[in-house]
Design a protein around this nucleic acid. Structure first.
Length: 274
DNA sequence: AACGGAACCTGAAAGC
DNA sequence: TGCTTTCAGGTTCCGT
């Protein structure tokens, strides 16, 4: 589920659920998601703390606590923050449960596949000097920092890799994932197999605008969903080409094709993406 | 240094 | 009805 728009959506939800509230209790079963860390250390770092803010950088969430420490959360492939009534029992996928002071639903982190991560960054570590390792190399955040075509052109120069694979590199832009890359390339009318270093400034501009287009569109679709959402609803594919191999291209009607690049699937239109 | 590929995991859906 | 295979929106590590 989680690429930049989903993580930003999660940030907004968490902000509403947690900011200004105090964590009365925390329960984290031992799991691979706690990297590095232990259940006891995590629980101790959270209990009694008030949440000051919820921030995002690329696909990383940072829950800022009132002692200056931060809880960092990466959702991996299947991570999800949810609100649940206090009486509802934990499922197998539950990796953290936060009980808040006062009458509020509990906030829980689910992650069945456990590719996600959850860790505490101590107060001194985050405030004073460098970013922690996992945030260190991240490129500009497309929402917070915008997308600069000149920067992209410079970074892509000399790369023999395909533009699709290159877009998934978080040091280029932080937060772009398989869907957003696929959608942006379609919007920009670019062949995903094209070598990254061979794009012209004009093509890079189209790509930057394609990225902005899909990010905003995906974010908007989620905002809508929250309002309509009631219990479980059938997941609907809101994307133009992702997951639509075999269907006609929404732009030129040619049949969309699915290929594998760097072990990830890419759907594109062989007719209008050149 | 850059690159392709495997590995890390579970679960839902499609295929037989 | 099972059993098997495929696939999944992410990162990291390993050998070349």
């Amino acid at each position: 589920m989680p690429e930049l728009p989903e993580v930003e959506h999660a940030r907004r939800q968490l902000d509403g659920w947690l900011t200004g509230k105090t964590i009365a209790a925390a329960h984290a079963p031992a799991s691979r998601v706690l990297r590095p860390g232990t259940p006891a250390a995590l629980e101790k770092a959270l209990v009694g703390k008030k949440v000051r803010a919820v921030e995002r950088r690329g696909k990383w969430l940072r829950i800022v606590l009132d002692d200056g420490s931060t809880l960092h959360s990466h959702l991996g492939m299947t991570g999800k923050w949810v609100q649940r009534p206090a009486r509802e029992p934990a499922t197998k996928a539950e990796k953290l449960r936060l009980d808040l002071a006062g009458r509020h639903p509990t906030v829980r982190l689910l992650d069945p596949r456990m590719f996600g991560r959850l860790l505490i960054v101590a107060a001194g570590a985050a405030g004073t000097s460098a970013e922690p390792d996992h945030l260190e190399g991240l490129g500009p955040d497309p929402i917070a920092d915008g997308i600069d075509p000149d920067y992209l052109l410079r970074e892509l120069a000399g790369s023999r890799r395909s533009i699709k694979e290159r877009l998934l590199d978080q040091t280029l832009l932080a937060g772009i994932g398989n869907i957003q890359a696929t959608e942006a390339l379609w919007r920009a009318k670019l062949d995903p197999r094209k070598r990254a270093g061979e794009l012209t400034l004009k093509e890079v501009r189209a790509l930057a605008s394609g990225l902005r287009w899909t990010l905003e569109r995906t974010l908007a679709a989620q905002a809508d969903e929250e309002i309509v959402y009631l219990g479980e609803r059938e997941a609907k594919n809101v994307f133009k080409v992702y997951g639509r191999a075999g269907e006609p291209c929404p732009r030129c009607r040619y049949t969309l094709t699915r290929i594998i690049q760097g072990g990830r699937s890419t759907t594109f239109c062989p007719s209008c993406q050149v």
